[in-house]
């Protein structure tokens, strides 16, 4: 991939990819390094939106829209609700202070090991990606993905679709039950 980088740079379609990729990764990294929790949520929302853009370039329009609606929209808002409902006494600067309060040593060891593990995992995945040989894709004709997806959902994937419905019902009922204030 890196060998073809220069060639790819000449291809205008790859600019989009690079843009969205940098946005996504940037969002992730900013999330990791932010001080305030709300900033973290915001940066992650940026990541979600850039992912939606990537789906668009991949010709998955419906998925892109769903991604924006749900991940960037609902989930992020949900998280902000959660943050505000579980506020500490110290507003905002939780991460740094917490890390200093409790014994930093074990925390640091934990972080270092996590970093090592994650890097190793990435290394293995990257190795696998490099070694794998993928067939050259045939150019897919653009389809109306929304219509096609809808058709698939009610025909071939009807069962998973229904199960998803049940899952969602169970999820929100369960969430209400768990979060309900006990009135005795």
């Amino acid at each position: 991939m890196l060998n073809n980088l220069i060639d790819n740079l000449k291809d205008p379609a790859s600019y989009l990819y690079m843009l969205f990729a940098i946005l996504a990764i940037g969002g992730g990294i900013v999330m990791l390094n932010s001080a305030k929790v709300v900033h973290m949520v915001a940066s992650l929302a940026v990541t979600f939106i850039s992912l939606a853009g990537l789906y668009l370039t991949l010709g998955a329009g419906f998925v892109a829209i769903v991604q924006v609606l749900i991940s960037a929209g609902a989930v992020s808002i949900l998280m902000i609700f959660g943050i505000k409902l579980t506020k500490h006494r110290h507003d905002g600067e939780d991460e740094r202070e917490e890390a200093e309060k409790v014994g930093a040593r074990s925390g640091h060891l934990h972080e270092i090991l996590a970093a090592v593990g994650v890097l190793a995992l990435f290394g293995v995945l990257y190795y696998a990606i490099r070694k794998a040989s993928f067939p050259t894709a045939p150019a897919a004709e653009p389809v109306n993905t929304i219509l096609a997806t809808g058709k698939l959902l009610v025909s071939r994937y009807a069962l998973p679709f229904e199960i998803m419905a049940v899952l969602l019902t169970a999820a929100f009922v369960g969430a209400i039950v768990i979060a309900k204030r006990e009135e005795e």
Binding site: L113, V116, G117, V118, A120, L121, V124, Y127
Partner: peptide, 15 residues
């Protein structure tokens, strides 16, 4: 973390 480390070790062993 332990799970991750174990998984990584396993994968490295296989690879």
């Amino acid at each position: 973390l332990i799970t991750l480390l174990g998984l990584v070790v396993l994968m490295l062993a296989f690879a």
